[in-house]
Design a protein around this nucleic acid. Sequence first.
DNA 1: CGAATTTTGTTTGCGCGCCTAACATTAGTG
DNA 2: CACTAATGTTAGGCGCGCAAACAAAATTCG
Lengths: 418, 418
Amino acid sequence: MLGAQTKFATEGMRKINTRSFVRATRATPREVNRQILLNLVREHEPISRADLARRMEIARGMVTSLVDELIADGSLYEGATVDSPRGRRPQMLFVRTRGRLVVAVDVRFSRTYVMLGDFSGIAIALETFDTPETPETLVAELRVRVRRLLETHRDVGTCEGLGLVVPGMVNNVTGRILNAPHLGWRNVDIRDTLAESVQLPVFVENAPIACALAQMWMGQRGGTDLTDFVYVNVSDGVGTGVVVNGQVLRGVRNTAGEFGHVPLSENGPSCYCGGHGCLESYTSNLATVMRYLGQPFAAPTARGIVEASGLNIDDVIARAHAGDAKAIAAIEATARYLGAGLAVIVNTLSPAQICIGGEIIEAWDIIAPSLRKTIAERALTDVAAATPVVPEKAPSQARLRGATTLVAAPRFAAPNIA
Amino acid sequence: MLGAQTKFATEGMRKINTRSFVRATRATPREVNRQILLNLVREHEPISRADLARRMEIARGMVTSLVDELIADGSLYEGATVDSPRGRRPQMLFVRTRGRLVVAVDVRFSRTYVMLGDFSGIAIALETFDTPETPETLVAELRVRVRRLLETHRDVGTCEGLGLVVPGMVNNVTGRILNAPHLGWRNVDIRDTLAESVQLPVFVENAPIACALAQMWMGQRGGTDLTDFVYVNVSDGVGTGVVVNGQVLRGVRNTAGEFGHVPLSENGPSCYCGGHGCLESYTSNLATVMRYLGQPFAAPTARGIVEASGLNIDDVIARAHAGDAKAIAAIEATARYLGAGLAVIVNTLSPAQICIGGEIIEAWDIIAPSLRKTIAERALTDVAAATPVVPEKAPSQARLRGATTLVAAPRFAAPNIA
DNA sequence: CGAATTTTGTTTGCGCGCCTAACATTAGTG
DNA sequence: CACTAATGTTAGGCGCGCAAACAAAATTCG
């Protein structure tokens, strides 16, 4: 009956691109069913073969065959048998995450973080160094460090790839950094050279998008399906990662999802993008600190003034928590503007959730009420007004988890067909 | 080599929903390849079996088998043999559109249009009547009219479905009209009752989304692949249909894509949505006529004033074309505001194209320069600034073409797998 | 205690559909 | 008229879904 209904809907209907399609072969059904099974184990482990057969509505024989293949290639492993009320006791299956290593790299304005972790996101080692001026130096530095890391922890497992997260626009297919203003890098074909240097598959991605992917793939097990949501990262700038229909929104030439520059006011403060009154110019960490300092924000001079003041966003948050009324007011103002920006997102995209990352969420108790209030005032519908807004759960590792996801998630993704 | 590259990208990577997945069967490869072949014929007709084999990189034997099936079920037909420089002359294949009828229904504020057409969008008959007050009356009216239409044109072919386009939010899966403010209808389960009445599969969709689908499926053959674009409909309100990654953006509870209510100014005119300074309150036909009348726009009273004036948007456009400076100024102002709204779309979604529909495009010569200028001023990147903005090509039938697409497109769409 | 029952997991044979390769058809050409 | 070159068809192998029988391991019950 449900099948008949979906036949009369255009939802999920995709047009086949006749210039780049993927034809099905006789091996295709197996690939598809293998991935479905793998994901069922991922979300329901521990789970038995018989349970999988019931969930997939296939015979147990096929499950045996598929599981054999997945165990052989190291995707699954067989645990102990478990008690059952009657009959033969089932053997439980698990996704193998231990010993499947990932090098996660987070390149930030001043420092670069390198983490060796496994598929579940657990850290084994963490290093940090000053971000080099040029991409070439970064590649050279990573070559040495990655080799040493993998050498040191050789007995832990084998590394399946390197995920690189950068603050800027990235072409995910070619692995080229298109424009990373904070680093001053433009049009850098980093993926292939880095892959050659470290002898690993390399995945490059924009930071908020990587965080959004982590949210989607490493979120709570068995929770709601987040197929439509937005990750908003508030730091020196305001970046967004948008997921629509379970896929990342990229737009032409990978320039989409720049909600940081929606205009909140026609004659607001000047922004680093060249515009005026952008969300970012009201809510970035620089803007918040400037507000606390009692100075008007203006793009070209703000960074210098803030650095000269010796204050950063963490200090302002600490003072707010200590009861400094000026600090509280500055943060609350930021929250109101941020709420206005989120209202635009809520009204245009209607996501199932908005997740906020960045230093500001340390002041969640202060910003949450203002966010909710502003969104409620500006939302067009009750649904939009009720959109959950949640803080990033593991803020300190958000980007590194994102980088890990870049390597791990493709192993579990649906195969592209047609 | 390209295959190896895409392995290191997360683009197009989809997470499998373990609560509603589609398992592959041994019939799956055939379904997939059948649809690919069908689409290749659609975009390259006339085309021979040998050509198809080359494009799909499969043996000619398989093409023969697949084509036999598609001819048997009426999807394709075989044309005449054609001359060729050497060897056996190929037999050309075509998609059958003649004799595959569709009832397209466009429900608008005052009148409802019913068209009988075929899969290619060619009209066979067109009727119109006053939009009834209640959905029940509409269903009863359609029952009579559709039966009569199909009776009259019985020899032309068989009808494959009815597409219903309404001005408002629709749940495309359940076929329920959630909220159509202009009609005053809320939560109407119209699809199943209508399907029972007319004894046809019924597809229900929101008007701008249907227009976007028509743009994607009935656009120029062999042109650029429009997988990311936005359709903006400017009429009494401003509605948008957004397509991302080849799929319609719906959001939770089907409330997404309301770019008509992005705020352009915090203290702008009051809008029918309850907000202030929305794009719609500056650029709807009502707003443009009010501007020409020299009156400030305000949501509750605007419609009454415009109706009392006896003027509508078509009159204002006609006067502008006749040289009325006030009319030209009013339309140009609308274009500037619309450009500001499009700039938000361009910066956030980065679509490959924006298509504009509605009466206003009759004044395309007047609005185009202002649109371009405003977008260029506010775009964040060169890519965004260069986003093509084009007028709807068949404005008078846009919605009816959309309704037709609702029925026709699913026959050509990729099967959902995994 | 042993047969019956129940549940899990494995093995086996069938058939659909991909895939290769040979074959038939139909034109031009030396 | 044989040769070449192209299109379209037919035949056999082989992988894999699919169903059904079989083996294994536990509990229940006479």
